[in-house]
Computed example of a mutant assay.
Amino acid sequence: MAGGSGPLDRVRALCLALPETTERLSHGEPTWFVRGRRTFVMYAERHHDDRVAFWCAAPPGAQEALVAEAPGRFFVPPYVGHRGWLGVWLDVPVDWAEITEIITDAYCVVAPKRLTAGLGG
């Protein structure tokens, strides 16, 4: 991946590759927005514990299914978990193809349909 090989660099590259996305700090962590307004991914580096993760919007039912299937890789994040957001641990072995799909799905949940056409989310 261009721009670095650490988890933050990789998440950043995936998020910024999507149409009309921007990054800025929110609550002290890198956060990505669609058209500068709608949050779709929030990075969480040791935010509440000594873990590295990101939190993202998720399609209906995805949070419950993924957390039940692989609780060592996925979790219900604080603050936004009640809205169906998904937490993804990045301090465990990571399948970056799967992370790409999860981030694309998060984008598709919040972005206008015109921007998501052809993304497959």
Rank of each mutant, 00 (worst) to 15 (best):
residue 75 F to G: 07
residue 61 G to S: 12
residue 63 Q to V: 03
residue 83 R to M: 00
residue 52 V to D: 00
residue 61 G to E: 11
residue 72 G to I: 05
residue 62 A to E: 14
residue 70 A to H: 13
residue 60 P to A: 14
residue 71 P to V: 02
residue 79 Y to C: 07
residue 57 A to W: 00
residue 50 D to Y: 00
residue 50 D to M: 06
residue 75 F to H: 14
residue 80 V to K: 09
residue 62 A to Q: 14
residue 64 E to T: 09
residue 81 G to W: 00
residue 78 P to I: 03
residue 75 F to C: 10
residue 71 P to N: 05
residue 53 A to G: 13
residue 58 A to W: 01
residue 51 R to C: 04
residue 54 F to Y: 12
residue 50 D to W: 00
residue 67 V to T: 07
residue 70 A to G: 08
residue 56 C to W: 01
residue 71 P to F: 05
residue 51 R to M: 01
residue 49 D to H: 09
residue 49 D to L: 09
residue 73 R to P: 02
residue 51 R to V: 02
residue 74 F to V: 02
residue 68 A to G: 11
residue 78 P to N: 11
residue 80 V to W: 12
residue 68 A to F: 01
residue 52 V to Q: 10
residue 55 W to R: 10
residue 72 G to T: 08
residue 65 A to F: 07
residue 82 H to T: 09
residue 57 A to Q: 11
residue 62 A to S: 14
residue 67 V to H: 08
residue 75 F to K: 10
residue 69 E to D: 13
residue 64 E to G: 04
residue 60 P to W: 05
residue 55 W to K: 06
residue 72 G to V: 05
residue 79 Y to H: 14
residue 60 P to S: 12
residue 67 V to R: 03
residue 60 P to V: 09
residue 48 H to I: 12
residue 50 D to P: 13
residue 80 V to N: 13
residue 77 P to Y: 01
residue 53 A to I: 05
residue 56 C to E: 05
residue 74 F to H: 05
residue 74 F to M: 03
residue 79 Y to F: 09
residue 55 W to C: 07
residue 65 A to C: 01
residue 51 R to A: 03
residue 65 A to H: 10
residue 66 L to C: 02
residue 82 H to D: 06
residue 55 W to H: 12
residue 70 A to T: 09
residue 81 G to N: 07
residue 54 F to W: 06
residue 65 A to I: 03
residue 63 Q to E: 07
residue 73 R to Y: 02
residue 63 Q to N: 06
residue 49 D to G: 13
residue 76 V to N: 08
residue 67 V to F: 08
residue 62 A to L: 15
residue 59 P to F: 13
residue 63 Q to A: 06
residue 58 A to E: 02
residue 59 P to E: 14
residue 54 F to Q: 07
residue 79 Y to R: 11
residue 50 D to V: 10
residue 66 L to H: 01
residue 75 F to A: 15
residue 64 E to N: 04
residue 78 P to M: 12
residue 83 R to F: 00
residue 73 R to V: 02
residue 77 P to S: 09
residue 82 H to W: 03
residue 49 D to K: 13
residue 76 V to F: 01
residue 58 A to N: 04
residue 56 C to Y: 00
residue 49 D to T: 13
residue 70 A to W: 11
residue 58 A to T: 06
residue 63 Q to P: 00
residue 53 A to V: 03
residue 54 F to D: 02
